[in-house]
Every structure is written in structure tokens, then in C-alpha cells.
Design a protein around this nucleic acid. Sequence first.
DNA 1: TTTTTTGCAAAACCTTTGCAGTTGG
DNA 2: CCAACTGCAAAGGTTTTGCAAAAAA
Lengths: 157, 157
Amino acid sequence: MIHLLAWREDAHMPASVDVALATVRARGLRVSAARRLVLEALFAAGEPVTADQIAAGLGGRTPRSDLGSVYRNLETLERVGVVRHVRAAQGAGLYTIARGENDGFLTCERCGEMRPADPRAVAVIRGAVRKAFGYDASFASYPIVGVCARCSEERSA
Amino acid sequence: MIHLLAWREDAHMPASVDVALATVRARGLRVSAARRLVLEALFAAGEPVTADQIAAGLGGRTPRSDLGSVYRNLETLERVGVVRHVRAAQGAGLYTIARGENDGFLTCERCGEMRPADPRAVAVIRGAVRKAFGYDASFASYPIVGVCARCSEERSA
DNA sequence: TTTTTTGCAAAACCTTTGCAGTTGG
DNA sequence: CCAACTGCAAAGGTTTTGCAAAAAA
């Protein structure tokens, strides 16, 4: 099981569903009910969720919708830049509102907790990767997997 | 499509199928024909391959075998520490012989090339992650995804 | 002999896709 | 009006699983 903690906002995140939809419209795409609903669910969730959770209406918090359409809309919204597809370490993919280019996620393989990374710290790591490998890395779609501080302590205790 | 280049050996990699199987036996597990075959395929491949490729006999280079058993054996061999399950950015999972704790892989999301990372450079990045987040990260199962130097140049050219 | 492992087939799981009908602009 | 989008259902690709038979120790 994956736990999500300490989720919070970021300066680059679209402020609202309407702002995100303005981007959609600006790209010549349509603002359909289903598309709006996906965005509303992502904002309502406030943390990465699966397509299935969105289609299921987040357990009652938002209206239900068609899973196929949810997947299609998530893909469209990701292409447009307002949604982030986060590949969880295992299981179904997660989706969340895009914040900025230094988005990042940390997953503990011991306790399963996934948490967002401080964008400034992500920038530092990206710089280190650039220096070491010449790669312009991104940690926005693939979490950094490891053992968190708390689990490390417990292990040594 | 994923390309694999510059694959080479490392001091920590089991020297042979027999060494790897000694580890298996040391854990109280049996050395079966199917298990040996999976290891032979991984050594013969010399680079990460899918379970399906192994079951298919690497296109004639090794004997064919049952896909379900290949998956079970890969999981067992990973648990024992002689095999690495590398989650490709997309598509089927890849498997390869484990080398050391600073195993790492880099994937370019533009050209699709996946290449092994220099273990010393991986150690540097792990240190940076530890400092920034307090995590003991591993890059052995989840590649570092980004844009490689060559593709960055092409883009700016 | 006893326990592990196999081979096969079926199922599970997540995601994509074809299509006819609907809708946004 | 008409291209974009939806809902449904079916298929796709990958991995897991149940079980009786086979094989390792």
C-alpha cells in the first residue's frame, strides 16, 4: 500500500480547474464535461490518484465517469502540461496536477510512503545528474525510490 | 524502442552461472534445470532482457522455456540477490545479472537508449540524495530518466 | 520420500482501442 | 455543421496463480 503525506501546493501549479481548462482551450482542444470532471477530481484529491479512483468518483467525492475516457483525458491533459503521470513503484499509474519542472516524488520501498520532494532539492539532484552523466534528468514521472530516514533508523535500532 | 549500448561487466557481478547457482543453493533453494536456464540466458544476453525473451530462448541462442516459470525464477533469483529487476520506462520489465549496490541505469526519453551508469557516479548521486532528502536511494531498479547529452545537442542545433 | 519446482492454462491487472453516437465551438 | 469527444465493450500486453505432475535433495 502507498501512503501519501504532506501534500501541498506549489507556485507553478495551475490555481484552479478553470485556469487548467484555459490552457486546454488555448491549445485548440475542447472543454468537455468529462475533461472538466477529471481535472476537478485531481484538484479535489490533492495528491496523486489512479485513473480508476477518478472514474470511481474518488469514493463519492466526485461524480463517477467512464474509465476509458478518464485514461484518454489524462493523456491529453498530460500532453498539454497540466497533469503529471507518476509511475508508482508498482501497481497502477498515478496522476496529479503538474506543479513545475522540479516536481519530484520520493517513495520508501520499506514503508511504502510516497511524498513530494522539495523542488529546490530536486533542482540540486538534477544538477548533480547533469554533472555526472550529462543527462537532463526529470524526477517528475519516476519517483526516487529508496529507504526513508525513519525506516533506516528502525532498521538499525 | 529501447536500445542498449555499452554493456559491460563489473567487479561485483557473479562470475558465472555456477557462482550464481552456488548462492541459490546456499539459501536452501534447489538448482533446477529451469532455474539454471534462466541464469544462462541472462549471462548469454549480457544486457537487460524481458521474461518473454528468456522464455523464447533469446531468439535461438538458448533453449525455450515456460514463461510462468521464468517469471517465478526471476523473482526467486532477485530475492536471492543475483538478479536485478529493472523497470523500463515503459513496456515489459527487464532483468539482468546483479552487479553491485551502485548499479544504475540511464534512459533517454527522447531516443529511448538505456545504458548502464558508472557505479562511482551512481554513488555520488546517492550521496546527494541522502544529503537532500535523508533517503538511502537506489537506482538499480528504477532508471534515471532524462534527455541524454546527444539528444540535448540535437534539440538545440 | 518429502518438499520444491515445473508446465500448462486460466485469470488478474492495467491500459488501449474501435466504433457508433453525442457534443462543443 | 463537423471535428472532437464520449461511453461502452472488447482486446491488448504483462504478470500472477492454481493445480496436478515431475524432479531435486
